[in-house]
Design a protein around this nucleic acid. Sequence first.
DNA 1: TCCTTTATGCAGTGATCGATGCATAAATAG
DNA 2: CTATTTATGCATCGATCACTGCATAAAGGA
Lengths: 226, 226
Amino acid sequence: MQNNALTPPPGSSSARPPRGRPREFDRVAALATATRLFWIKGYEATSIADLTEAMGIGTKSLYAAFGSKDELYAEALEYYYTTYEGLVWTRFRKASTAREAALAFLEDSAIAMTGGDCDLPHGCMATLASVGSDGHAELAELIRATRAGGFDILKARFDRAKIDGDLVLAADTTKLARFVQIVQSGMAIRARDGAERAELHAVAEMALSGWENITATVDQGMEREA
Amino acid sequence: MQNNALTPPPGSSSARPPRGRPREFDRVAALATATRLFWIKGYEATSIADLTEAMGIGTKSLYAAFGSKDELYAEALEYYYTTYEGLVWTRFRKASTAREAALAFLEDSAIAMTGGDCDLPHGCMATLASVGSDGHAELAELIRATRAGGFDILKARFDRAKIDGDLVLAADTTKLARFVQIVQSGMAIRARDGAERAELHAVAEMALSGWENITATVDQGMEREA
DNA sequence: TCCTTTATGCAGTGATCGATGCATAAATAG
DNA sequence: CTATTTATGCATCGATCACTGCATAAAGGA
């Protein structure tokens, strides 16, 4: 949860200026390049050779600056989230109702996953990340936690909507948040397969077209099931 | 599309019985074991050493029987589909309306993705397959084609529903099929992350709770968007 | 100027990757 | 029986994996 060995604060307080030879490359730019590569190809398919070539530095500099491949990936995932989370959550936070928030989240996800306003890689780095769980337990847990964070935000917003009054108290916010999260996850897979933005946009709208039914009848729906 | 080098007919017509030393292992059982391993760990994270150990055979026998890792994966994907597609599509095919078919597909997917009635690996092998596109273009295309097959089945069913009359002619069956496919894809990711069957079951129901709104207003929804 | 500190380039570490050569074992055909 | 055909076990291939030791270059502090 807190900063462990994998995620040291990147721009930690530089109390004294470094005395030796200064770094010849921009660390942030290199991290951005690494992030893009991991985003596109994933952890396992991205080799150190791929990274050093794309970043324009040698392996020694990479390890001196980032420690290991795992630590670099962890920093890249953090960079990814802090840099691009606004694309997906800004309108969500401004929305006045739970439904508007969910729709904004899915619509803006559709935009972000198809390149945004620039040429971002398609798909969601956190959703599509699949680190083989052999010896990378720490990374796998970090990725799972990142995914879980999105769910928590959704559920918290829906819980607040109950207090605000725009969501009935009987609504199951956990299931609601899971549903929205699952739709976004599915969009990520389609985006990686080359889906157009309009397709994902339409899906965002269709997903919430039954909002009133969902929020009002989800519990009695479970009773009907049993 | 047709059988290429990667997918020779496994049980092709044995015109004459083999003359030499018979194989000491069951090829189908070995393929089933390999399929399960690929299903759980994916293509890249599953090594030949992992496979030979799990299958209980040597590398020479593996290559003699299956050709290469790529060809083995292709056969495993085919085995996966032909063996388990019934879990997901049987009730779908029997359904009398498009909505019932879609609901059956999502509900049965929820069951299959959480182990079915035995201890199947969680998640969908085809959906979660992510072969790094470096030098494995043929496999990547095969996987994309497998995913596309599911979409085609859904869309064909919805198109038929228009003729049957239980779906309005104005409905956009392409978007409808994409939506259902995306929900199922998202379920696969959640299943791999350890989702309970009940959670995915609830999502299947929620996804189709706006069916009447979707099928009736999807086009005017697009107009409202523009 | 000299000394310390840091970064870089190059070569190379052991390990593992997918895949093979070779000798041998085991079966059938004659 | 012998000859032929096939499967297997063992050792190993070159390539690549993540990663590091060592010598050198380049900066600041004194």
